[in-house]
Design a binder for these strands. Structure first.
Lengths: 236, 236
DNA sequence: GGATAACTGTGTCTATAGGACACTGTGTAT
DNA sequence: ATACACAGTGTCCTATAGACACAGTTATCC
């Protein structure tokens, strides 16, 4: 019943802590194959196409067979994520915290551009797998030599990844009004019709590209972090 | 078929552009009642409890009766959002763009704290209703006297609202590893067990409170925006 | 070397979701 | 008065996640 029990189960699954069975017939496949298949479906037809039946059918088995490997769909999603995230970026070759963080942001953005269904499901309270955990670890390495506190470092890297996530949501399904989605032209018409009530929005020109949003926001965030760093640095 | 058709229909619904019927029996209720009922259900039992059947039953009618008022569930959600967002904040009493934006962030955060199901569904490509549109309009007013370009202003207010959204996601369902959710203690154990692979994360102490995250991030963002503003300001 | 217990995949069943569609009744405009 | 446009209802369909009993398979124990 308690959600933490489920998440403990997810943790065991993701970190390879489940005891392999000693007796009984050979499993026809393993979790990695299931995860890869599900990822393939999501890549091809989107996350909403991923159902137990669909993944099972893709493997040539019945839906219920999957439940021998996975307790519920949440676990399927969890192993999907772990299989879909690429290896964490190595920032050791980049000089300076700012360039490192920027490089991290670009790699994260590139990874999510390849799999547009990832950013949305990786938000929220979750247990991460070892591969995925490598990403925040990598991001933290960017700030290792700064005078920021541990807490501030975590906040800073969350700021960056949340920004990338939000801008991706704005780009693919879109987010607010002014981004380039299906809703954008409709909203523009509505704003022009009601220009008296929304003068500022109505006079604002057309939507910027997603990359522009990312750039301004990323620079602003990094400027803000830099401000915090210089504040913490003792004046000499 | 095309998604933009659906969104055009949503726009007509939200902005009151649907012609009232001339002939036929009186409707037993109106869209506002439906929206309020759905909001009440979401407030009491969460968004996942909101189904056509549930809302209809709450009103004492059958599920299919709702489809006379709403084309599909997406439209129900749309009117729910419009009914649930409060009036946009009036920032005219606050002095200075920074204080205004900060006040805006606090009001947005307070509004979303009252309705934890709102931030998640208000992300993504959407047509907004007139009440909700008042919010970005209000946010833009904070930056009206700054030398930022229109585009930069939009980027800036998106930065703020996305940050609030992300931190709320971190607080209620939680988000990454280190936030205060069900998954956090489990992740901590895993990190300590694998401290050799994740030295930076493993040595990091316990999760900060959600408000702390908001504060650091908000200040960083505002510092970044301030940096952009002072850059654009001609030196005198 | 058999019995046993653990395990596999399958078939059947339930609950719940969104939604299509035909039907009966009602109110207004012609 | 009549016809039309609308209202709510009941029935039906498809798809979802999941519970559970069942038959076949395999390693371990006596």
């Amino acid at each position: 019943m308690p959600a933490s029990e489920d998440q403990k189960a997810v943790a065991e699954l993701l970190w390879g802590l489940r005891k392999p069975p000693s007796r009984g017939p050979r499993p026809a496949f393993d979790i990695a194959q299931i995860a890869d298949t599900a990822v393939k479906v999501a890549d091809a037809e989107g996350l909403e196409a991923v159902s137990m039946q669909r993944v099972a059918a893709e493997l040539g088995f019945t839906k219920m067979a999957l439940y021998r490997y996975v307790n519920d769909k949440a676990e399927l999603i969890a192993v999907m994520i772990e299989a879909a995230v690429g290896p964490a970026p190595d920032l050791s070759g980049v000089c300076g915290w700012r360039a490192k963080l920027e490089e991290y942001a670009r790699q994260l953005s590139a990874a999510w551009r390849l799999r547009p269904w990832l950013p949305s499901i990786t938000a929220g309270d979750r247990v991460m797998g070892p591969r995925e955990t490598g990403w925040p670890e990598s991001a933290l390495s960017a700030l290792a030599d700064t005078p920021l506190t541990e807490r501030e470092r975590l906040d800073a890297i969350m700021l960056v990844s949340n920004h990338i996530r939000a801008t991706h949501a704005a780009a693919t399904p879109g987010t607010q009004t002014w981004t380039a989605g299906n809703a954008a032209p409709i909203m523009r018409d509505l704003l022009l019709l009601n220009a008296d009530r929304f003068p500022l929005l109505a006079t604002t020109q057309a939507a910027p590209s997603a990359t522009t949003i990312q750039e301004f926001g990323l620079h602003a965030i990094l400027d803000g972090v830099e401000h915090a760093i210089t504040q913490r640095t003792p004046k000499q």
